[in-house]
């Protein structure tokens, strides 16, 4: 059995274009020709879209093979439109939900099978993912409230943030760090090695995220919870063979995360 290389299928051209767009946008913002919010919009589309594009590219290398460029461009555009709309009106965050719909369509067509998204729904695994998300999220809310005295809020902005997580943050993280990276690594190395690398890279992505609050307790909490979430989701994928339990766990956890007023 011949396996693709670790980076086989990476859409280098598309990533280069995305990087160029991001750089150009940053320059224009720096020159004052574009508002700072434009950089935020482009960053969301480029980072999450780029991660999803890589995941699509890697998924397309295993049979049945398909051309990932079109679906990648579509999801980047969806994210860009949703991010742009949200800057004008938080209610436009609902456009983020077009992203999971598009992913569902791709999954039903069998193109995301290599990432662990397929027609069959693992009920037991999904319930376990729900329990994991509730446990971690509940613990985080408890710790935030009891230890640090943060308020728990459920206003409209929370819903907009949850929509952002459902359409961009959670899918890009799970499809890339678990579905693509961990999946590819575990076919070369042991589970422990694969989960360590995939979780470490995922952690790095959150630490460099400009949207993450810079408060020390938030950074430490993120380190702990995202590490635990990464390990649990990788185990759920290994155990159930499906990415869905991890998506459920992440979604529930990030929903709780968004309820912390400090975030």
């Amino acid at each position: 059995m011949v396996f693709p290389g670790l980076l086989t299928g990476t859409p280098a051209g598309l990533l280069a274009v995305l990087a160029a767009v991001l750089a150009m946008c940053a320059a224009l913002v720096h020159l004052g020709w574009l508002p700072p919010s434009a950089l935020r919009v482009v960053t969301v589309a480029v980072v999450h879209g780029g991660l999803l594009a890589i995941a699509f590219g890697w998924a397309a290398t295993t049979p049945p093979q398909w051309r990932p460029l079109g679906p990648s461009v579509i999801i980047i555009l969806v994210l860009a439109v949703a991010a742009t709309g949200t800057r004008w009106d938080p209610r436009a965050a609902i456009f983020y939900l077009a992203s999971p719909l598009w992913l569902t369509f791709l999954a039903l067509s069998g193109r995301l099978r290599a990432l662990g998204l397929r027609w069959e729904m693992p009920v037991g695994g999904s319930l376990l993912g729900l329990a994991a998300g509730l446990t971690l999220g509940g613990h985080m809310l408890l710790a935030a409230a009891v230890t640090f005295g943060h308020r728990v809020t459920t206003d409209g902005l929370v819903l907009a943030a949850i929509a952002y997580d459902a359409g961009a943050n959670v899918p890009s993280s799970e499809l890339f760090f678990r579905g693509a990276l961990f999946n590819r690594l575990q076919r070369r190395w042991s589970f422990a090695a694969a989960v360590t690398v995939a979780t470490a890279v995922g952690l790095l992505r959150y630490l460099v995220d400009p949207l993450l609050p810079r408060a020390p307790e938030i950074i430490v909490g993120t380190l702990v919870y995202v590490t635990l979430l990464g390990v649990i989701n990788a185990w759920l994928l290994w155990w159930s063979g499906s990415l869905l339990p991890g998506l459920v766990a992440s979604l529930v956890f990030f929903a709780a995360y968004r309820m912390v007023a400090a975030v």
Binding site: Q186, R187, R188
Partner: peptide, 11 residues
């Protein structure tokens, strides 16, 4: 040792 002999969900 072959780390994975197929494309099953679990190696």
């Amino acid at each position: 040792f072959v780390p994975d002999i197929g494309h099953e969900a679990r190696p």
